[in-house]
Design a protein around this nucleic acid. Structure first.
Length: 447
RNA sequence: GUGGAUGUAGCUUAGUUGGUUAAAGCGCCAGUUUGUGGCACUGGAGAUCGUGGGUUCGAAUCCCAUCUUCCACCCCA
């Protein structure tokens, strides 16, 4: 009879003790993105299966073996989104956002679903922060997106992360390159590993970063994409680099970067960490100039990136970065008896209307137990309300940090505490402020 | 999908060559006389030893299967 109390394989709960970190990250990242002119877009978790087949690409692993696809009761083939770009582009086209001025710059936080074998940094349900910039071909836009990504990592004080950059050209020059690559590897086919022989047909660029020593040895002398770029693509790539230089962003050219989704063209990039295991790509993205047309829209050169929130968390943990704590209770009222409890309920309600985080006993525990609880949740102040206080009209306001108490009139707790807590809050503001510099101090040599 | 490892209370672990009511620390709850937390002490709750089979007089300990988690391949965020 006992039911299985277990989250589905490859899924995770965000518990209260951790969820504040995610909220903090989302808030800060959103603020940065909005300074770059990105606005939020929210699209459904599921789309018609076709959308992903056409955009992500029929031959990709993501589409071929990782999608959560099902038929709904109306006989429609539905798929849980495996990534964010397709849905955003669909929405952009469907609602004619190109009529609202280009470029359209959007960001999103979404859950994504891929049926993969879970391991470090790889889950079946995972969360992404993504941005899309629709309707510009300019290399300045590429650099701007990369700059946004870079600023996020910088703000969080993440150091061991490298920006790797490449250009995979347009369909025309990439076809040339693929041809050359295939010719090169075809000659050494007998030496390649089995997966690479497979890759030769499906995605020859993958052979370039094969981990087998034999393959990577062969790959050393393979032709490089950059040498096969057409004039336009080469110029575009050079310009992206110029912008990055102008923005003081360090990058490493990595000619073996390949994106696994078919829609990418020209600029591709990854932010890679070596500290979180085999799944080191924390953020990946690039340009997809042909996607809009592939989906039946007008030509709309665009680009975007996605960051894995779980991987971001792994990086932060690996570096020992402490994120600011959740809000703490400002005042905990410990009543004894029904009359005091009713009064406490009223006071707490008034305080909450003033925006103060206040609590009172809703369990019916002894004073001692209540004090312990108040201590555990980190309450800043406590007040005991019992017969004595009700009779005398005076209670003790206790500062839990230093144990000091001061008198407070029982019938004026709400208004008096409001002013006290504002003073305390002002005093704390400077200590608690979180920015790149303060965070670095928090890193505390843990790595 | 392929390969390797793991699975004992909420958490971290102990459990000797299979033998009676499965331990500990932390955490949780409650007390330590009169109404005030952090320390200390005492007590309590909490585990069908991942699950299902099998071997055995007897299994957390052995065997098989299965699931989860972890790690790598693959793939990607």
């Amino acid at each position: 009879m006992a039911i299985n109390i277990q989250a589905v394989k490859g899924t995770q709960d965000a518990l209260p003790r951790d969820s504040y970190k995610l909220r903090f990250l989302e808030q800060e990242i959103e603020e940065i993105a909005s300074n770059y002119g990105f606005s939020e877009i929210r699209t459904p978790v599921f789309e018609y299966t076709d959308l992903f087949c056409r955009s992500v690409g029929d031959t990709t692993d993501v589409v071929q073996k990782e999608m959560y696809t099902f038929e709904d009761k109306g006989g429609r083939s539905i798929t849980l989104r495996p990534e964010g770009t397709a849905g955003a582009m669909r929405s952009f086209l469907e609602h004619g956002l190109f009529n609202e001025g280009l470029p359209q710059k959007v960001f999103y936080f979404t859950s994504c679903y891929r049926y993969e074998k879970p391991q470090a940094g790889r889950l079946r349900e995972f969360h992404q922060f993504g941005i899309e910039c629709f309707g510009t071909e300019s290399p300045a836009a590429d650099a701007e997106a990369i700059s946004l990504a870079s600023e996020i990592f910088g703000f969080l004080g993440i150091e061991d992360i490298v920006l790797e950059l490449n250009s995979i050209g347009c369909p025309t020059c990439r076809a040339e390159y693929h041809k050359a690559l295939k010719e090169y590897f075809e000659g050494k086919k007998s030496d390649l590993c089995n997966t690479c022989i497979d890759r030769l047909e499906r995605n020859p660029m993958r052979i370039l970063d094969c981990k087998s020593p034999v393959c990577s040895d062969i790959a050393k002398d393979a032709p490089t994409v950059i040498n096969y770029l057409c004039d336009d693509c080469r110029e575009h790539f050079e310009s992206v680099k110029k912008y990055l230089d102008a923005m003081d962003i360090d990058y490493k050219i990595n000619p073996t970067i390949v994106r696994g989704l078919d829609y990418y063209t020209r600029t591709v990039f990854e932010f890679v960490s070596t500290k979180i295991g085999a799944q080191g790509t924390v953020l990946g993205g690039g340009r997809y100039d042909g996607l809009a047309e592939q989906l039946g829209g007008a030509r709309t050169p665009s680009l975007g990136f996605a960051m894995g929130m779980e991987r971001l968390m792994l990086v932060l943990e690996a570096q020992g970065v402490e994120l600011p704590q959740d809000n703490k209770c400002n005042l905990y009222i410990a009543p004894v008896g029904e009359e005091a409890s009713l009064l406490a309920a009223k006071i707490v309600t008034d305080l909450r209307c003033e925006g103060i985080f206040a609590m009172f006993d809703v369990v019916g525990r002894s004073i001692k137990a209540q004090m312990k609880y108040a201590n555990k949740i980190g309450a800043e102040f406590t007040i005991v309300l019992g017969d004595d206080e009700l009779k005398s009209g005076v209670a003790q306001l206790k500062n839990m940090d230093d144990g000091e108490t001061q008198e407070i009139k029982v019938d004026k707790i709400a208004e008096d505490f409001a002013s006290i807590s504002i003073q305390a809050a002002v005093g704390k503001l400077s200590e608690d402020s979180f920015d790149g510099i303060d965070l670095n101090a928090l890193l505390g040599g843990s790595i």
